[in-house]
C-alpha cells in the first residue's frame, strides 16, 4: 500500500495541529501562565498595598517597565518570611549574586516600538494592557497584544495613530 495507516495517522495529527493552531490557539484571548523560577504572587503583594511602581520603578523613565533588582526583593524579604520555600530560593539567588531568570509573559515583536514611559505619563493604568495582575497569583496575558488592541485605544484617547512614527520604525 502506498499510504500505510500510520502515515495517515501522522497526516491527520499534523492537520489537526494546524487546524487547532489556526482556529483556536492563535486567537485565544490569553496564553497559559508560564511557570516562574520563583512562584511569585502579585496578588499577595497587591493585597499588602504595594504599588506596581514600587517594584517596576523604571516604568515612567524608560521604555521598559523594569524588573526589581534582587536587592530590592531582599530589602523586605531579608526579614519577611525568610524561611518560606520560595523566599529561600530568592535568598539563594542573592547569595550567589545571580539574577532571577523570570520568564517573559508580555511580549511584542521587535518591529513594534512600545515605550512604557509615554503611556504612563499619559495616565494609562497598568491594568489596561496587563490585566488585573493584582488578583493573579501567576501572571498571564489577558489582553491579546495585537494591532487592533493598540489602535482601538490610541483612537479612543486621541493618541497618535501614525503607523510609522508612532510604532513601526
Amino acid at each position: 500500500m502506498f499510504f500505510s495507516l500510520r502515515h495517515l495517522f501522522y497526516l491527520a495529527a499534523v492537520l489537526l495541529g494546524v487546524f487547532l493552531w489556526i482556529f483556536y490557539f492563535q486567537d485565544m484571548p490569553y496564553r497559559s501562565a508560564p511557570r516562574q523560577p520563583i512562584s511569585f504572587s502579585h496578588r499577595i503583594h497587591y493585597e499588602r498595598q504595594i504599588a506596581c511602581i514600587f517594584c517596576h520603578a523604571d516604568v515612567a523613565k524608560s521604555a521598559y517597565a523594569g524588573m526589581p533588582p534582587v536587592l530590592k526583593c531582599m530589602g523586605c524579604h531579608r526579614e519577611v518570611i525568610p524561611y518560606y520555600p520560595d523566599v529561600a530560593k530568592l535568598h539563594r539567588y542573592w547569595r550567589e549574586q545571580k539574577p532571577i531568570p523570570w520568564v517573559r509573559v508580555f511580549w511584542i515583536p521587535q518591529y513594534v516600538h512600545f515605550p512604557h514611559q509615554p503611556h504612563i505619563l499619559a495616565g494609562v493604568q497598568c491594568g489596561v494592557c496587563h490585566g488585573d495582575v493584582g488578583h493573579e497569583n501567576r501572571v498571564f496575558e489577558v489582553v491579546n497584544f495585537n494591532m487592533g488592541t493598540c489602535i482601538t485605544c490610541h483612537r479612543a484617547y486621541g493618541a497618535r495613530t501614525d503607523c510609522f512614527q508612532a510604532c513601526h520604525h
Binding site: P34, D58, K61, S62, A63, Y64, G66, M67, P68, P69, V70, L71, K72, Y93, W94, Q97, K98, P99, I100, P101, W102, V103, R104, V105, W107, P109, Q110, Y111
Partner: peptide, 23 residues
C-alpha cells in the same frame, strides 16, 4: 528573525543609580 519566543527577563542583582535599563 523575530519569531514568537518568550525568553527570560534578567533583573539587576544590585541596582545602579547611574543606570536605568532601556535608557
Amino acid at each position: 528573525a523575530g519569531c514568537r519566543t518568550t525568553g527570560h527577563i534578567l533583573p539587576l542583582v544590585v541596582p545602579d543609580n547611574r543606570y536605568i535599563p532601556g535608557v
